[in-house]
Amino acid sequence: MKPAPTAATPAATSTAAPAPAGSPARDVAAAAPALALGDDALVLSHRLGEWAGHAPVLEEEVALANIALDLLGQARVLLSLVGDEDELAYLREERSFRNCQLVEQPNGDFAHTIARQLYFSTYQELLYGQLAVGDGPLAPLAAKAVKEVAYHRDHAEQWTLRLGDGTQESHERIQRGLDALWRFTGELFEPVTGLDLDLTALHDDWITRIASVLTRATLTVPQGASRGAWTAGAGRQGLHTESFGRMLAEMQHLHRSHPGATW
């Protein structure tokens, strides 16, 4: 049971609020969408960083780390629109994160990671593309990041082609990854608070691109539901899947154990 606040505790302090007390959002209109997209970038960056020391070949080790670095840079800009980037990254609880559930899914094997990269980078490129042409507060970041993400998407596409049209084993593995992650893709096309998006166009363009790559890779577009009854929009509301808590524990433990540590 959570103890009731004592009279000495300032009533206004809420640990569940997206922006920690003392660091008010610098741009109120941008705060909600910047938190959602910033958390997407931060969480996927951490997942990709987990490949360091484990990638199948050295070039992929470097590639995944570079993609993670791009995403981390985007996360820093986006979270800084909301408040203090370190507080937001290291001191929030699981339920305060607004990332979609797709990006928090564990890496699995290399093919599984590539399937996640294909789904997400294709979405992110289209999303940033829409935001870049607008005049919203996220437009400058989107215009810059869309060019970086084009390389992430290209990387994922090339690997999807190679694995899908490769050996029996690689074909089976990437198809398995694509199938397993499909149910997390519906959430990408749920409205994001504060973002003015053409979700129909976003979804149609995404499906067209994914189908085109998968067909060329001799793979099948998964047929199952792209969302579960309880998963739709869940990550954006702070509801996450089981492995996310363990990921956060690893990501946050150093900062929490040694507050203010630098290197």
Partner: peptide, 13 residues
């Protein structure tokens, strides 16, 4: 092309 990403994000190998 050996890899789209090299020693830094701005370079390919």
């Amino acid at each position: 092309l050996l890899s789209r990403f090299s020693s830094t994000a701005c370079k390919a190998l």
